[in-house]
Design a protein around this nucleic acid. Structure first.
Lengths: 241, 241
DNA sequence: AAGTGGTCTAGACCACTTC
DNA sequence: AAGTGGTCTAGACCACTTC
């Protein structure tokens, strides 16, 4: 029960109090006051406040106090940031649209130099090459090319990759993909992009490429995703400096 | 002296030890061992390890231990992620190229509804409208349109916005821009994009738009940046779920 | 049962801001 | 000088993994 954690309880309560406009002056009580209000240690208060600060809901200023981000009250939807359209079945379903997958290629190839580096492989290792077209309500939205070492998931099959590979890992092998390094760019569409994603030559793709990791840190997949430009929107809260 | 902080010292030392391949089995000593090795509290060890985990340099697994990301050893450059080409003078200079600014428009307009919401303004408020072309080594790379409430920086001038506005704020007004909400997309180039950024109609722009905040949480600027697609590459470490 | 990371406490002392 | 957030300690107890 994650909700039972002290700092999470306080976190949610503070979120609610902020949203209920309990601090119209945009200033939260100081940490020592919160400590006695909630009857917990100052560390737990700090932890809750740190999460709020990381989410951009409050700003802390040493010596002055902790302040509510005025935007949070007016526009809470902004605060559901971070990677809207990742190429993950789950996040696609979240939009209320029905996700679909069409397998374009499923084969085994020797690992290239880049794969050897990024997936931590030896020169003689092989990888699955998996090309899939992702759909939302039968609309093609993304061409995904993934490379997965056969030694990590030797039993992969065309049938398995017709569904969510991440879900398969979690359900059948009790392994979780928890992190990824991604780089995000815009690129002109290639002829193949245009054909598969119904784009005109003037319409671009958004490209997200990178590495997915299992939760013990094993690099699991090298991935390249080319998205219909209207379906890529990446939101981030950026710390400057 | 930030470097004097206990957890930062340990952080840097661990980073060095990892890079020197002092843990060939990819497993760090457990936290209690590190505690006695460094002669500090376990909290400080945890703090250092948490930073390393957030940076993707190590992975922690409850019950098992803390593991080195193998990629860190092979490809450290990957780990300088997070927002390469933000439209900030400083980050541009970092590439070794000489940044330039050409002011396209500097005027005052009434705040639109969107600006009222995002910049927390009243209906009768005015904003500076600042359109600038950003250059790197005389190459145009970005069209930046910014809206700044006049009441936050009433003394802004065409001369000031010919340089870095953020640096001006920091030097002259002792205010810092520390955070921003950004959304990142790909879009076909408009005719204006093509003219100003030397693009063909097939070449797209990367669009980064959002809000910049001062360190007390005041929304400072609404910004829209249209980048030559070859100059936008956003790197992120993404936590899944 | 032993190992290992996660949560939480109570309190000391420091650093920056405001008055 | 008073207010307020930041760093750090020492230690208790919990939860998950491995053997």
């Amino acid at each position: 029960m994650l909700a039972d954690l002290v700092y999470k309880t306080i976190l949610k309560d503070l979120e609610k109090r902020i949203f209920d406009n309990e601090f119209p002056a945009k200033k939260l009580p100081d940490e020592r006051t919160l400590t006695s209000q909630y009857g917990v240690s100052r560390s737990s208060i700090k932890r809750a406040l740190n999460v709020l600060a990381n989410e951009g809901i409050v700003f802390k200023k040493r010596g002055s106090g902790t302040f509510v981000n005025p935007l949070y009250l007016k526009n809470r939807s902004l605060f559901n940031y971070e990677g809207s359209n990742l190429g993950v079945t789950d996040s696609m379903r979240a939009d209320g649209k029905k996700p679909g997958i069409k397998v374009l290629d499923f084969s085994v190839i020797p690992a290239t130099k880049e794969m050897q580096t990024d997936l931590f492989l030896a020169a003689e290792d092989f990888v699955y090459q998996i090309r899939r077209l992702r759909l939302l309500d039968d609309q093609p939205v993304m061409i995904e090319t993934g490379y997965i070492p056969i030694k990590i998931a030797p039993e992969l099959s065309r049938t398995i990759v017709s569904g969510s590979i991440f879900n398969y890992l979690e359900d059948k092998k009790n392994q979780t993909v928890t992190k990824s390094f991604l780089s995000i760019e815009a690129q002109p569409s290639t002829e193949e992009d245009q054909k598969l994603l119904n784009l005109t030559p003037q319409e671009p793709v958004g490209v997200m490429s990178g590495i997915f990791f299992l939760d013990d840190g094993t690099p699991f997949e090298l991935s390249n995703m080319r998205l219909h430009y209207q379906y890529m929107k990446y939101n981030a809260l950026v710390e400057l400096k």
